[in-house]
Amino acid sequence: MKKRLLGVIDATTYSENLKDLTPHRSVAAIPFGGRYRLIDFILSNMVNSGIQSVAIFPKYEYRSLMDHLGSGKNWDLNRKRDGLFFFPSPRLDKPVFGIDSFEHFAANIDFLNRSTQDYCLIASANTIFNMDFYPVLEWHMEQGCDITEVRNAGESLNIFLVKTSLLLELIHTRNETGYLNMRDVVKDINSPYRLCYYPYEGYALTVDSIDHYYLASMELLNPMVWKQLFLKDRPILTKVKDEPPTHYSKNAVVHNSMIANGAIIEGTVENSIIARGVKIAKGAIVKNSIIMQKTQIGENCILDHVILDKDVKVESGVSIAGTKEVPRILQKGSIAKGECVNT
């Protein structure tokens, strides 16, 4: 049973509402939770479900994603047989029609033809959740479904289970049927296939906007949400980096925050997520914020409701404020100067 599923991750997803975080990376590679990337959740769920062959289909700005995934070693996917496969779009001048583009799959049809798995699990790369997929497969088979869509509170999680042979048929007949992706198939009320909807009742949030990204990040600080996402027997795996523990000075004050390895905290941190290698100087106050890798925050700064991308430098004495509804975003490598930068 454990070898019957092939994992397919559609990493082509683009959202205009996330453009401030994606000028140099794909949505799948957006940092999350101080040490993860969005793709880590679906990839870890697949691996924890016993899936040993995973294909990733990205389109634009995938260098960061490739660097993060590497050979797949951190997910135990650096195998002689099966393992991790990476299939960038061969035609950057042609549109990729959203989630699960059959055009993109068709360009790599040899991979699907050679796969030995009976069923294929197709998913997007930007949902935060922790799920075992084999109960879905058992339910799918018991119900006699052709296509199963996983839903949470009645909303699609953009996860589809289908026989590999049927997926190949859908790809080959896309020009005749007009189906460009799995969403087209499940939305067609005249579809000849038996469609089923599997209810997932755990925590799940799809990150398709800054609002959802900020909300999902802040909800990590809720112990009830944390316990649903980070399970001992189903860990969320990510790229391993050998860094020292975070150093806290004697004047550091930290409340209700997540702080990754390698940081230096000399100021105050409240209700915030601090990534690897961040430095927060003495007298600085960081509240309700997301600070990404290797950002430096100078002395006596005040940051509230902000999202600072990687390698941002905030000079001493600067105040930056956003709101819960509209957090202030500083893009990768930017420098904040002056006395006050408000929304």
Rank of each mutant, 00 (worst) to 15 (best):
K80I: 09
I297Y: 08
V269T: 06
W139P: 00
P135T: 07
V240D: 06
K332M: 15
S115D: 08
L215W: 04
F133P: 09
E243Q: 12
R234H: 15
S319L: 05
L38W: 03
E176S: 13
D146L: 08
H172L: 13
Y119N: 08
E149N: 13
D184G: 13
K241A: 09
V54H: 03
K19C: 14
G83T: 06
R174H: 09
M224N: 13
D110M: 02
I285W: 00
Y197L: 06
F87S: 02
V136I: 15
V207R: 04
T116H: 12
R174P: 05
D40C: 06
A106Y: 14
L161F: 12
M131S: 04
K294L: 04
E270Y: 12
R174N: 13
T22W: 06
H247P: 00
T13E: 15
I51N: 01
I56S: 01
S26C: 15
T343Q: 13
S217L: 04
N190P: 01
V136K: 00
T295Y: 02
F102P: 08
K310W: 00
T173K: 14
G322M: 11
N130H: 10
H247Y: 13
P327M: 09
T246Y: 08
V136C: 08
L6S: 02
L167D: 12
S334R: 14
F160M: 10
I9L: 08
L18H: 08
V47N: 01
V314N: 03
Y197N: 03
S53D: 07
A263R: 05
Q293V: 06
V96F: 06
R194K: 15
V253S: 11
Y179R: 05
I264Q: 09
N158G: 02
T343M: 09
N261Q: 10
V286Q: 05
V186H: 03
I99M: 11
E16M: 12
S89G: 02
G267W: 06
L231C: 07
A153F: 11
W75T: 03
N271G: 02
S191K: 04
E149T: 12
I285S: 10
G72W: 04
E176V: 12
G98T: 05
G50S: 02
Y193H: 11
G267R: 03
I236T: 12
I210T: 11
